[in-house]
Amino acid sequence: ATKLVYGHNNEPASVAGAQADWFAEAVKRHSGGDLTVEVFPSSQLGKLKELAEAVSVGTIAFSHNTAGGIGSLYEPFAALDTPYLYRDVDHLMKVMDVNSPVMTELNKGLIAAANVRVIYAHYFGRRNLTANKAVRKPDDLKGMKIRAVPFPIYTTAVEGMGAAPVPVDWSEVPTALATGLVAGQENPVNVILNVKLYEVQSHLMLTGHMSNAEVVVMNEAKWQGLSAAQKDAITAASAEIRERATKAIQDNESKDTEELKKRGMTVIGPEDGLDLAAFRASVDKLVQQRFGAKYGALYEKIKAVA
């Protein structure tokens, strides 16, 4: 029997955290108990960037991260987090399938560069903007400071939407919003609900400016060290959990939006005058300017996935 360690940064109660436990259970089931995955949630074994590197050097076997985070191991992955990149969740899931032409190629590069393999990826949610006022078009964000993840592709999204991106450590975000250090932030609705951001933000704008996948990765040497049957167990568990987690997130997305409404947030969608086309055009322009040369070919391949 083989024991493998899975470390991640999410709380076990969130879907992103729970899916690691589901995966551990599925691996055990599919391998008939021959393979055990031990899960360590809540950054117990290190923070995000550190976890990605830990998989690369073999400190731990598994972790998960955003595509942007995997980009610190192999740069082209960051392109998968480009704002307004996917047509819909179905498109995202097809691109992120380990057997898709895009993913096959990226995975080869990741293995060569970092000794890391993507074993599956699931839909993690659409990022939406929150603030203490109604925002309907890029101009409304002019001069507003919005908390952004300190990766170039994420700050570009916020900047493209018309705001000034400001880095704030995640543990300080609720306080920073309460006190006005930043005027808003952007995250999937489940995060907004779990961290109770409705206590400090009045408006939720369904900008959906970025669709993210959570990418589950494994140390390549550990993968190659497994027997064929063990590899099969992981592949089967991956296929199962990828669907289950995606469905759970999608189900929660509408439920969570309703819950936020109930908790007093004003939700602004396209039907309330949210000018999605303007946001998309403004963000696309900046993305092309900054990343067009680097990722242009990859963007075409992603578009071609049907």
Partner: peptide, 18 residues
């Protein structure tokens, strides 16, 4: 256990704005 964690953790534990 993997030895490199010694260097990795010791440095990353200090990589914090707080």
């Amino acid at each position: 256990l993997p030895v490199n964690v010694l260097a990795q953790r010791a440095v990353n534990a200090l990589d914090s704005v707080q």
